[in-house]
Computed example of a mutant assay.
Amino acid sequence: MLLIYDLMKIVVKIRKITLFILTFVFFIASSFFIHWLEPEVFENPFIGFWYVMTTVTTTGYGDFVPETTLGRIFGLFLYFFGIGLIAIVIGKVVEGFGMYRKLKEEGKLRYKGSGHYVIIGWSSKAQHAMNEILEIDEQGSIVVIDTLPKAPYEHEKLFYINGDATDTHTLERANILDASAVLIFARDNEIDPVSADGKALIIVSTIEGYAVEMERDIYTIVEIIKEKHIPNFKHANVDEFVIADEALSDLMAKAAVHKGSGKLVMKLLGRKNGVDLWKIKKRDAWETYNDAFEALKKVGANLISDRNDFNLFSKLDDSIPDDAELFIICNKETYKKVKQR
């Protein structure tokens, strides 16, 4: 009994992978050994394996029982040592799951998916953007990069990376090269626009440098505090800017002059009214913008622009470029119909 106790102390200290291999070898060897001891009862090693596993898991069906004294002594050894061994293995497995959960929560794991959205800098705006993205893209997933000690938000589609976004190793862990887009947010209640926009510039410059080094394109969207700082980003290759202060001021000004326009814009930006802004590609049957306009109108969608060109109604007879990026307004069901056409 003391020998079994000493063996258990040694087993507990063994590395997981080594323990799993030794456990597998022990069970297989025990299956052949009991078959060798009592070939009349355990006619083949598989029956021996059945007996070993029902013994060490305390199932004990009793359909196969050793008849000799030596066989029963080995059965006792399996009962004491085998049950202890399987308990340790199960404990190691549970410990492994707990460690994985802990490492994931602390942002220390690597993200291996693709087509995801990377959010750098957690804030209330970032959380709202995440919810909007997941509402629009039902198959999407979010990777958040920040320096918080734990994941800032619990969601089945959120993966947290703890690290410095200006470190390429952190970007690699977020698999940023395979991301659909990267969104860089300023902190909540940021009072120093120079510091906030300067930090965003350093981050986006790091991303751009990494993209050039790897010969890949990374779509970046940056929130900046002051519009006058945009020229400082000219070498950073930012795809889109969202201006925090000026956007709100412009919206309020337009609402004051053109009453009701603020509500219209807010409804378009939100998803509560069921209508949203969607991007589609040109169809082969659409030669001109008018062709696209009429075809979309029949299914309940409104064509509003080609990229940032809103003057389509003045050139409906113009040909649509092959690389056009058309934007429409409609609900999700209509958008799905348009995509299937």
Rank of each mutant, 00 (worst) to 15 (best):
I34W: 02
F33W: 13
V238C: 03
E138V: 08
G98C: 02
S123Q: 04
L312E: 02
V194R: 11
T288N: 04
R101S: 04
K108D: 09
D188E: 04
D306K: 10
F32D: 01
A181H: 10
E67A: 11
D322L: 12
K92W: 00
G62A: 07
K336E: 15
R271A: 13
M53K: 07
I203A: 07
N308L: 11
N232G: 12
P152R: 06
I28N: 00
D306N: 15
E223T: 01
Y289P: 05
G115R: 09
L70N: 07
L7N: 05
K228V: 09
L3F: 11
M53F: 15
A151Y: 00
E215F: 08
F42V: 03
V144G: 04
P66H: 04
N175V: 05
D197C: 09
I184A: 05
G121W: 02
G274C: 03
A126P: 01
V144S: 07
E287D: 11
F32C: 09
I4F: 08
D245L: 14
H35N: 15
L277A: 01
A174E: 05
G198L: 03
E67V: 12
R72A: 03
E213Q: 13
I224N: 06
S314L: 11
I184P: 01
A29H: 00
I73D: 11
L85A: 04
V94N: 05
D63N: 14
A256F: 14
I243D: 07
H128E: 14
S30Y: 05
I14S: 07
K92Q: 08
E213L: 11
K336F: 14
F77W: 12
A324G: 08
E132H: 12
G75M: 08
F27R: 01
N175C: 06
I86G: 00
S141M: 05
E135Y: 15
V265M: 10
D63H: 12
K125N: 10
V41N: 03
K150H: 14
A29R: 01
P149G: 08
K157F: 02
C330N: 03
Y117V: 12
F74T: 02
V118W: 06
A256Y: 13
E172H: 06
L303P: 04
D167S: 10
R216F: 04
D306Q: 12
V338E: 03
R307E: 13
V212G: 01
I120A: 06
E325N: 14
P45E: 08
K125R: 13
W122A: 09
I224C: 04
G48P: 05
F42E: 06
D178H: 09
L19D: 09
K281P: 02
L85W: 05
K16N: 09
I329Q: 04
L2R: 15
Q340L: 13
I320S: 08
A29V: 10
H128T: 11
Y79L: 14
D164P: 05
A29W: 02
R110G: 00
S249N: 12
I28W: 06
A253N: 14
N189C: 06
L183N: 05
N175D: 11
H35L: 01
H155T: 07
K259Q: 10
I120V: 11
K337W: 04
P231R: 00
A151E: 07
H35T: 15
K226H: 11
E215Q: 15
K199R: 15
D239S: 12
E246W: 10
W36H: 14
L269S: 03
W286G: 02
S314Q: 13
W36E: 13
E106N: 10
A29M: 05
S261A: 13
P231F: 03
A186G: 11
G75F: 07
I191R: 13
L171K: 06
